[in-house]
């Protein structure tokens, strides 16, 4: 294993780690909306600086913060090319067959790529600084108003947290199964596509069986302990919101308002 899996929680004690998880999730939501609102050069510069500042505060190293986008470079390049060649036929440099490359298209593609990139990086910072269980608690907290219109938010959060809890176990089991089948002669590392396809069943069937078995055991255990799906799950630890939490939320809101203001000034520009 050379690099860490994307978005894995990295324990730490930075100001970002210490923030209340509900505030963090809300802040992430606002930040992503803000990223979509940005439509000026200055706006992007501010956004990049803002996210860089958060990354630095979180103590997450730059390569780790950026590894959310590691496997997406091809996706980015394709978006950029598609936009450059198809987006704006009106002011194309020239036209050849269906291709109408234009500067407008190129800049538009660039902004799309930049927005996706920034949203991924900031989400990655959230998941890297917040234990998965905290995230589900935060989610439960944030969607709890919907319970008044009959949506079982408690159960949704429970399902999510169970699913998240099982990821490490299943990952470990998958690894063991892969190794066991490999020593039996399965050819996962083969380059031939037929041999790759052949190696699918020996992996998939044991993984599914293991997952079903775990789910079955868990449901029996939950029932035996009296779980009846009633909402009102208690948190393991909860602390009251601190000045820092409100401060963080305020900063994010200010950045958002600033971007809205910039957008209003800049209405005529459309990228």
């Amino acid at each position: 294993m050379k690099s860490l899996p994307t978005g894995i929680f990295i324990p730490g004690d930075s100001p970002i780690h210490r923030l209340d998880s509900s505030i963090k999730l809300l802040a992430l939501f606002i930040t992503v909306v803000t990223i979509v609102l940005v439509n000026s050069f200055l706006g992007y510069v501010i956004m990049i600086l803002f996210i860089m500042m958060i990354a630095m505060l979180s103590g997450i190293s730059l390569p780790v913060a950026l590894n959310a986008t590691n496997k997406l470079y091809w996706f980015f390049i394709i978006i950029l090319l598609m936009n450059t060649f198809f987006y704006s036929p009106e002011d194309a440099w020239f036209s050849f067959w269906v291709f109408t490359p234009s500067m407008t298209g190129f800049t538009y593609g660039l902004t799309v790529v930049l927005r996706v990139f920034l949203a991924l990086v900031i989400s990655n910072i959230l998941t890297s600084t917040t234990p998965p269980m905290e995230i589900t608690h935060a989610l439960e907290h944030l969607i709890s108003p919907f319970s008044y219109v009959g949506i079982p938010t408690g159960q949704i959060a429970m399902i999510l947290s169970i699913a998240i809890q099982f990821i490490p176990t299943l990952a470990e089991e998958t690894d063991t199964i892969r190794k066991a089948q490999m020593t039996r002669g399965a050819r996962f590392d083969s380059k031939k596509i037929t041999q790759k396809a052949e190696a699918v069943l020996p992996m998939v069937i044991p993984i599914f069986l293991a997952a079903f078995k775990r789910a079955d055991e868990l449901s029996v255990a939950m029932e035996a302990r009296g779980y009846r799906g009633v909402s009102g799950r208690t948190k393991k630890s909860s602390r009251p919101l601190l000045v820092g939490d409100y401060g963080a939320l305020l900063i994010v809101l200010l950045v958002c308002l600033l971007q809205i203001a910039l957008r209003l000034i800049n209405l005529t520009r459309t990228y």
Partner: peptide
């Protein structure tokens, strides 16, 4: 050649029954 190693060495993991399919 990895295949040579696979032929020579067999490995039994803990709870090997998980590998049945």
């Amino acid at each position: 050649v990895r295949a040579e190693l696979r032929r020579k060495i067999g490995m039994v993991f803990q709870y090997p029954e998980i590998q049945l399919f």
